[in-house]
Design a protein around this nucleic acid. Structure first.
Lengths: 146, 146
DNA sequence: GTAACTGCAAATTCTTTGCACATAT
DNA sequence: ATATGTGCAAAGAATTTGCAGTTAC
């Protein structure tokens, strides 16, 4: 029902070959609890399959992205990858103090995107939102020691 | 009244030296009608001052950013620079087809940011929003030739 | 069997840094 | 006078590409 079950199928029906490497990348992202950089994905796979390399990581991610199975978010010039959610997008809160990220899901952006469409005749397909600021922890810390 | 008049002053009062190079970068961004990459800024300045170079471009932009005179937006792994608007942020619509960008200003994001603060105790200081999709022109073209 | 894919190394692109010289204060 | 800033060249980091060999179909 979710896109998770259909990765191999999606590859197959799109004419892409089902390789071990692509499955590794897919599985790594499925098991991850947060977005991962290409480097992180690669090194995790290398633990079990030492000949795996970064070029293949990028090439696999490119395919998975094209099939809308994976979503890339750029934070500070680096790309991070995670499973694409089915319907709704999700966004990132980045604490500029401790560097932590929080994911937010929900339809907060729907009215914004709607507005954009109305005002500019622009048909939005995806939105990358990174909100900078201070997370709850760092905020509390700052309050304690002003 | 706007931040535009106070670049030299801001540099001065912050203890930064007022150099020709920094003024060149500032003036280039003032004259620009859209955001520019470091490379674009540099080559424009080089037309009048051939010894100007990229390293100085980046270093000048860093200073101007720190003084909140300039805002950087990252699109597709590249940094683009423009004057920081006084009060309100502005965002970018990026046409994935023709590569054009449209700037949107306004307070569309205010309720979103407010919500985020409520829900996550996260204090937002800035938001980077890049909306991908299809601009009006490309949309019309697609409608004509389906 | 063959077109697609991988591994490796080298190339690209964007950005940062070290250091000798120049300059704003 | 001197701390800061610049120019140049070289280093870094992230990503892409060329190509010979491998593999899924």
């Amino acid at each position: 029902m979710t896109s998770r079950a259909s990765a191999t199928e999606a590859l197959h029906t799109s004419g892409y070959r089902l390789t071990m490497q692509r499955q590794f990348v897919w599985d790594t992202l499925r098991q991850a609890t947060e977005h991962l950089s290409a480097e992180q994905i690669c090194s995790r796979i290398r633990r079990r399959f030492p000949r795996f390399n970064l070029a293949t990581t990028y090439r696999s991610l490119e395919v998975l992205e094209e099939l809308s199975l994976v979503k890339q978010t750029r934070i500070g010039g680096r790309g991070y990858y995670e499973l694409a959610q089915d319907g709704q997008d999700h966004y990132h809160l980045l604490c500029d103090q401790c560097g932590s990220t929080v994911d937010i899901e929900g339809d907060h952006m729907v009215p914004v995107l709607h507005h954009i469409t109305q005002d500019h005749g622009f048909v939005a397909s995806a939105a990358d939102l990174v909100v900078h600021g201070r997370c709850a922890k760092c905020q509390a810390r700052a309050d304690r020691v002003p």
